[in-house]
Design a protein around this nucleic acid. Sequence first.
DNA 1: CAGTGAGCGAGCTTCCGCTTGACTT
Length: 774
Amino acid sequence: MAKNLVIVESPAKAKTIEGFLGKEFLVKSSFGHVMDLAKKNLGVDIEKGFIPNYEISSDKKKIVTELKKLAKEAEMVWLASDEDREGEAISWHLFNALNLEDKKTQRIVFHEITKTAITEAIQNPRKIDKHLVDAQQARRVLDRLVGFELSPLLWKKVKPSLSAGRVQSVAVRLIVDREEEIKNFVVTSNYRVIGLFEVLIKDKTIQFSAEVPKRFESKEEIAKFLEKCKNASFTVKSTEKKPGKKSPAPPFTTSTLQQEASRKLGFSVANTMRVAQQLYESGRITYMRTDSVNLSGMAIAMAKDEITKLYGEEYVKIRQYKTKSKGAQEAHEAIRPTYLNQSGIDGDASQKRLYDLIWKRTVASQMSDAVFEKTNVDIEISNHDEKFVAKGEVIRFDGFLKLYMESTDDENGQEQEGVLPPLKTGDKLKYKEINGEERFTQHPARYTEASLVRKMEELGIGRPSTYAPTISTIQKREYVVREDREGVERKYNCIQLKGGEIKAVVKKENTGFEKSKLFPTDIGILVTQFLMQYFEDIMDFNFTASVELEFDEIADGKKVWNRMISDFYGPFHSKIENTQENSKKFSGEKLLGIDPVSGQNIYVKIGRYGAMAQIGESESEEKPKFAGLKKDQSIDDITIEEVLELFKFPRLLGEYQGAEVKAAIGRFGPYVTHEKLFYSLDKTDDPVSIDLERAIEIIELKKQKVRESVIKEFKENKDVKVLIGRYGPYISIKKQNFKIPKGVNPEELTLEDCIKISEDPKNAPKKKFVRKKK
DNA sequence: CAGTGAGCGAGCTTCCGCTTGACTT
């Protein structure tokens, strides 16, 4: 029996550490937090001074039982959760949940997973820091109070099942605000002029381009300028050389990894985290949820060796990076390869690509600066005050660029500055062509998942472990959608001087194209408006940062945690009560126009089931008519014609096999119905224009699919069927589904087998909440 | 799965941050 039990947070970490510690130590993991506020109700006793009601999380009962047993048998228990607020709380929860004794419990922390660091930690144990635990309790209770008082208010005032919270609501606000900025953005245009020049050097003609620094306001102004250029001579007036340098980006944190993987590999935030988890579990990289850019001494030494071996000593430059992000807790290292001498790994394509990115970024971070020589050449126009400027860039020493260059979010990219010919003052130049081109100003860019994470990190909102889940929550709640949008064609003016002639042409370009961008939905906009109106302080971008300061004071023992919560809760709760009583239903109702048939008002608004249109007044005696909007329609920009179309449903298409076929739009999108059965339409079908022929095609196709899905039927009992679905074969009995136990051949199932399987409580279907019918 | 939208009242939804598998019709 092991004398010592060490408990860490992650099982992969436990495995590594056990190797360092020898037989006397058993290393186990808690799989993160083991206790949390009660799931039901508020979980906080407000009257008694915000006493939290903790319980062991349902998915941790098993591990707690096991750890309890091991702790009892051990002589000493070492709580080795991470060295941050949450980690301290995990240790404290373990202490309570495992009924540990003070005298046989030690708290240890280490910053890197090396034998030295761990041995040193064991030699320097301490006790649980109760102040730090209190800071975590304050964080936890505040989030629960905010989330569990705001959400029910939304259910009542806006729509059921919605959610609000310190992090997610601000994330949605960022996207809503950005869309508003874009809507209000006024596009203007101006002209830039680029000349293609020729110079004769050693009997060779060399071409290069130069730009007029000034932007021209109009076509006419450009034409005048080009007219002058026709007869002008061009001379190099001055050349200037300046040295420049570029430094590598720091090693990856969760947030920067998500950004780079999005830009360079096109990964979603969730995908990046899934692949990184796989790399971590197979021991390829260090921990992937971190806000630290720090590398261990060992990692730096490995990087130095590797760079020297690959490129030589002049490429090495050891650097210590400092984190800039707000609220960083730095319990881990930066994300880096475990073994820097492995430049590649086995694995699937995603794993290889992500590893390659991490390896390059890490190694490059310890390499020399790239050194440039920048050249500026001014070109005089003999009959005009304006000048042309040619810019060139030559790399004198590539340094880290040999390996890796961080990409940017700027979609237009910078102009590539090429190599200029060796120009001297007084050189005479000839123009080949001079082009004036209309350029448009651009609205601020919509967020991608990764650029939203960057913004959140900048504001100190959310943590490395929650970026990906938060992004998926706001999409799951349908506050935000991630979409591609097609661009539109735009015309722009060009004027060219070539061979002494000036020619104007209109060219076309595609603009407004968006790939995987985040757009707010009607409901996202509405909820944001509601929260901004009644809870501006929670929606303030600095709210998290300011409560974080208070958490720090609690951690330092300068503030009592439940006093801080009490000070916050008082005014917050009055606002909740006030809004509850004094505000009306918040539906975003908008008067769209008049119904030409009835002469009544047409409104659009958000109802219990989402966006809808209404003809007539809610308060009138005669009940108004309602119609749901289609999924891709928005109350923001729907037209009255589109709304009137919606009221034409259900449309009778005709008869098929003696029964009516109708088309309509339901909760799950457009469908046709026939003999009381429903058939969803394809994305390409439009319920407004679909004809009987196509409807029959859809009906027959679905019927065919249903027939094909049947593996077995029983004459004796028509209710019982063996079917094949998305996840393989299953048993269906009167709309209830049961999975087939492993090792059973579905073809050989008898009716008795099926009934037996369905009656086994182990296979009972999960209880699902079904909305009651009226 | 399904054609709702008033109001009533039952029972339900909801937060953030720490961790992985179990599980889906």
